[in-house]
Amino acid sequence: MCSYCGCADLEVVGRFMAEHEHIVNHLTALRGALHDPALRRAAADDLAAHLLPHVEAEEAGLFTVMARDELFTDHVARLCGEHHELDDLLARVKDGEVDLYARFEDALREHVNREDNGLFPAAAIHLGGPEWDEVERLTPGPSTAAGRAAAGRP
């Protein structure tokens, strides 16, 4: 999580960063369940239940607004592509391709790093009040306990 620029103080960015931490913490359960098919599927479903709504919220709000600026269009497209890759890798691990777990974990951690330490600080600097209002309006509400806590909701 970025701790140097203050971008986490922006409500939606703080929420996304908290969700990132929550999602990454779910890796432990999946890693521990890799060799038990029932536990692996349950752990993958649990992780996906946090990851997929998070991805949808990022893409609906912040990514939509940021992608309008040609300075960020390609970067946002790359991040969206990574979302699809993460979904695919997680599904394959869930279905028994456990040798892909390390690739999934590395890809997830790198992706989170690119958002937390790249796009989010850039958004904090680049976007103004009207754009943040639009991001807030377009972003679906928190769907995880971590997201609700970041947004100050029970």
Rank of each mutant, 00 (worst) to 15 (best):
Met1Thr: 15
Cys2Arg: 03
Ser3Met: 13
Cys5Met: 03
Cys5Arg: 09
Cys7Tyr: 01
Cys7Pro: 10
Glu11Leu: 13
Glu11Pro: 04
Val12Met: 09
Arg15Tyr: 04
Glu19Met: 02
His20Asp: 13
His20Glu: 07
His22Met: 11
His22Asn: 14
Asn25Arg: 06
Asn25Trp: 13
Thr28Pro: 02
Ala29Ser: 04
Leu30Met: 03
Arg31Ala: 01
Ala33Met: 01
His35Ala: 12
His35Pro: 00
Pro37Ser: 04
Ala38Val: 06
Arg41Tyr: 11
Arg41Leu: 10
Ala42Gly: 12
Ala43Asn: 03
Ala44Pro: 15
Asp46His: 14
Leu47His: 15
Leu51Ile: 08
Leu51Lys: 06
Leu52Pro: 00
Pro53His: 09
His54Pro: 10
Glu56Leu: 14
Glu59Asp: 15
Glu59Lys: 11
Ala60Tyr: 00
Gly61Tyr: 03
Met66Gln: 13
Ala67Trp: 09
Asp69Ile: 01
Glu70Ala: 10
Glu70Met: 12
Leu71Asp: 14
Asp74Met: 15
Val76Asn: 03
Leu79Pro: 06
Cys80Gln: 15
His83Tyr: 07
His84Arg: 11
Leu86Trp: 08
Asp87Asn: 12
Leu90Ile: 09
Lys94Arg: 15
Lys94Glu: 04
Val98Phe: 14
Leu100Cys: 10
Glu105Pro: 13
Asp106Phe: 04
Leu108Phe: 02
Arg109Lys: 13
Arg109Leu: 09
His111Met: 00
Asn117Tyr: 01
Pro121Gly: 02
Ala122Asp: 08
Ala122Pro: 06
Ala123Met: 00
His126Met: 03
Gly129Pro: 14
Gly129Leu: 09
Pro130Gly: 08
Trp132Gln: 06
Trp132Tyr: 01
Asp133Phe: 14
Asp133Gly: 14
Glu136Pro: 07
Glu136His: 15
Leu138Met: 00
Pro140Tyr: 08
Pro142Gly: 13
Pro142Met: 12
Ser143Ala: 13
Ser143Glu: 10
Thr144Trp: 06
Ala145Ser: 08
Gly147Met: 05
Gly147Ser: 05
Ala149Lys: 08
Ala149Asp: 02
Arg153His: 12
Arg153Trp: 05
